[in-house]
Amino acid sequence: MSMLLGLFLAPLLAGLIHRVKAFFAGRQGRPLLQLYWDLARLVRKHMVLSRTTTPVFLLGPALSLVSLLACLTLIPLGGPALLRFPGDILLFLGLLALVRFATVLAAMDTGSSFEGMGASREVAIGALAEPGIFLSLAVLVVQTRALSLSGIWARSGPELWSRAGLVMVLVGIAMFLLLLAENSRIPVDDPNTHLELTMIHEVMVLDHSGPALAVIEYASALKLWIGSLLLSSLVFPLHSGSAWLDLLGGVGVVFLVALAVGLVESTSARLSMLRVPQFVGLSSALSLLALFLVIR
C-alpha cells in the first residue's frame, strides 16, 4: 500500500519543489502534475540511439529504475516495510551504489565529453557521500539497536527525540545535506541549468530520449521520494496508534521535506564545484560527530 503510494506520488514531489521555487521567484510556475504529463508523452515517443552506444546505454536506466523500486520495498512508511530483515540497510545502500554505477556507465557509453564530465563529477561526489550515508544510518542503528530500516522506524520517534535530541538534530541535518547532494539539488547541482558544462546529473542523460528518458526522469523522482522518505520514516516517524494516521503523517513529512528542499533551493546559490567536496564532507563530519555523542 505505502509502496504504491510512493509509486504514484513521487513525480508530484518534483512538481511541488518547482512550485516552491517559482513562488519565491515571483513566477506562476508549471502545473503540479507537469511531470506526469511529461512522462506520459515521453513513453509514447520514438528514441534516438547514438551509433556509438551499446546495450549498456539502455540497461543503465533500466537497472537504476528497478534498483530504486527494490529500495522502495525496504523503506517503511506508516507501517513496517514490505521486506525487512537484519541488514537490509546495507542492501539498500548497495542498491543505491548500483544505481550510480549503472547511470554512470550509461553516460560513458555515449562517448560524449559532456557526459564523461558529468559522470566524473557524479562518482566523485558519490564516493564522498558514501561514508556520510553509512555513518548517519549507523547512528540510528546504535540509537535504536535495530539492524533494519523497519526496526529503526519502529523504535525511533518522539521518545528517542526527548532522549537524544541533539544527536537526532545532527543526523537529520546530515541526512538532509546528503539528500540535496544525492538528488542533485541546488547547492551542489542545479537541475534547471541550461549550460552543459555546469551540470552533473542532467548532463549524464543528455543523449537519452523517449521512453529511456521517461525511465530516467521517473527514477530520479523516485530517488527524491526515497531520500525524503528516509528522513520522514527514520528521523521523524509518527506512532499515533492508527496505521492510516501514521501513513498520512509520514506522507505529510515527506512533502514537508520537499518543501524544505524548495526553500533551500530558492534561498541559496549554487556552490562552486571546488566547494562541493566540503559540502558533502560536512555531512560525514556531522554524522561522525553524532556517532561520537552516541558511543563516547
Binding site: Q278, G281, L282, A285, L288, L289, F292, I295, R296
Partner: peptide
C-alpha cells in the same frame, strides 16, 4: 587544505575519545 584539515579535526576528536575510553 581545508578539506584535509576538517578530516584532521574529526580524527583528533576520534583520537581523544579513544584515549579517554
Amino acid at each position: 587544505g581545508h578539506g584535509i584539515s576538517v578530516v584532521v579535526g574529526v580524527a583528533s576528536l576520534a583520537l581523544s575519545v579513544a584515549l579517554f575510553r
